[in-house]
Design a binder for these strands. Structure first.
Lengths: 338, 338
DNA sequence: TTGTACGCGTTATCAA
DNA sequence: TTGATAACGCGTACAA
């Protein structure tokens, strides 16, 4: 065995020896609901602090088969809203003593191997942050692995193996649509993101059917391959640039804020028009950039705090499947009265 | 011991039994540089695949005291450039079979306990992504823990316990300054971020002294408490709004792109002026948003790929401390000829 | 090239 | 409330 410099790798045995108790008593001092006298616990903890002892989570996981580690799979670092989610999730998880294994899964292939890698680390759960890829792929990996819990965050899930925690998109988009109708817009253009996701979000369907119900016509829509401002910009300029003024939409309804930011720039710098006077724009997610005075983006804020809380409840044994959670419509200047 | 459902927790022993070899031979089949015959390895790997066996990284780390896990400490999810770094780092690390423990450390206190938490997971290294907090704090924690390597990424480090991998800020800012001089700007305003970081970056010092050398005057500067567009926006509008036109700067030099985005919006929507015709703006980092036609931000791209490569070399035993790495000046429309 | 004790630091379970 | 035994799954060192 390699000799370690003294002072390194302080074990429970060392603490036990120091206080003249057994290793198991030391372990109990670090467990919240253990049967141990208050005095003993204090003795142990004091000695532990003095020696610089902290339980080894690897050994703990090995022995207990609970690692208190979760894998966070993310496939798109350019979408600011995903990062808000990562931030909220890490903060919430850490507050409950969960550690986070971050896995960058740019493609479906990565996602499968990522789940396997997570298994090798014995994570207690895997959390997919609104991912692009199809779920049948996931399911097959899951059935072959021993991942206890798989949570799809901020998206609905079709898989029985996965639990979904998400915002109530139908309610959200209904509110948004009603807001736009109330403001008097008549010629909307819906801008959707990647097909695989859009179909799961129910935003487009909700908007379309609600508008149809109220106004009797189904609005046109466009799609970009990625949730990126640049792609929305290019697509919209290409599509709208040659249109006569009267054929332009009076509001561009975007599936999320990343697209909406690109849409606002496209209207202003690509078409040379004003937002909202010539064309209004709405988004979804409430990213920080949209709150800047220059954008003043009307959007829908997802209930991140409650979603994170639901996740924590779920991880700690609760099976509180409360269904979709309502968020909040944020009205700013980008849909100001015409 | 709790009984596990059959099929779960396939161990090396199971594979060994199946192929009629010993457990240690199975382990060798999974080691790259092990002495094992090709035929045997194939036999073992085939059997492993069939059984769904993968080595348990926890047990492996416990036995070998190498976890192939690194902690990534990040304190600011709003700065897009940090996220570019997280993406590049995770991708690079994963490609070399490193797993990443993401630790959200909004405050200094969090950072200290985060390092302890990382120790509990036996990480092989901790990587600090351009953090706000002072390093003496870190050092004291380090000396008390057994963290092998601490890397300060994208910032210089004063601590002997930490290794720094960063862009050559002096070279970068010299190039930027010369570019602005060449374009004929005469009245710059420098916008700095939080003091604790700015002093480490050398960007402001370099700009100031270079400008002084060339033009004989030291430019004025302003500071915001956080690298956020909103704060830059507010600060600049407050400071410049009441100034007569002739006292306005002709170029706003920002310590990074987050500030520059806010500066551009401040000029356009807060002051009602044009960029770059009335006031030019420059940034640093080259975030995606700055490349949008509406911003066209002149900036300096950090050599992320090379920085990540340097980190990987470092982790795999190399001690290649190559010093700061040069990046690339990106000239766009925000500093177009007057 | 292959096989074997032993240890890594902890927890579950039972006994005292 | 405390102590003790037997795992958890694998790596190291050495022997065969």
């Amino acid at each position: 065995m390699a000799k370690r410099p003294p002072g390194e790798s302080v074990t429970a045995d060392a603490v036990a020896k120091k206080v003249g108790l057994s290793r198991w008593t030391v372990a109990r001092a670090f467990k919240n609901d253990a049967s141990i006298s208050i005095a003993t616990r204090k003795t142990v903890l004091d000695a532990a602090e003095e020696l610089g002892y902290l339980p080894d989570l690897l050994a703990s996981a090995l022995a207990s088969s609970r690692s208190r580690l979760v894998a966070l799979l993310i496939d798109d670092f350019e979408n600011p809203h995903k990062l808000m989610m990562v931030e909220a999730l890490t903060k919430g998880l850490q507050s409950k003593s969960w550690d986070v294994l971050l896995v960058n899964t740019p493609t479906e292939a990565h996602a499968s191997s990522a789940l396997l890698a997570a298994r090798q680390r014995r994570v207690d759960a895997a959390i997919l942050i609104g991912m692009y890829f199809a779920e049948n792929e996931i399911s097959s990996v899951l059935s072959a692995s021993r991942l206890n819990k798989v949570v799809v965050f901020a998206r609905t899930s079709e898989s029985d193996d996965a639990i979904s925690i998400c915002c109530d998109d139908v309610l959200a988009m209904t509110e948004m649509t009603d807001h736009l109708l109330e403001r008097g817009y008549r010629k909307p253009l819906y801008v959707a993101g990647p097909e695989t996701i859009s179909t799961k979000l129910m935003r487009q369907e909700t908007f379309m059917s609600r508008w149809q119900d109220k106004r009797g016509v189904t609005p046109p829509s466009a799609r970009v391959a990625k949730y990126s401002p640049n792609q929305a910009y290019e697509m919209l300029v290409g599509r709208l640039n040659d249109l006569p003024r009267e054929e332009l939409p009076d509001v561009i309804v975007c599936e999320n804020d990343a697209l909406a930011i690109g849409a606002i720039d496209a209207v202003r710098y690509g078409l040379g028009l004003r937002v909202p006077q010539d064309i209004a724009v709405s988004g979804f997610d409430d990213i920080g950039l949209g709150a800047l005075p220059s954008y003043g983006l009307t959007t829908y804020r997802q209930p991140l705090d409650r979603m994170v809380q639901a996740l924590l409840d779920l991880l700690d044994g609760g099976n509180a499947d409360r269904g979709p959670i309502p968020g909040m419509l944020i009205i700013r200047t980008s849909t100001a009265q015409k």
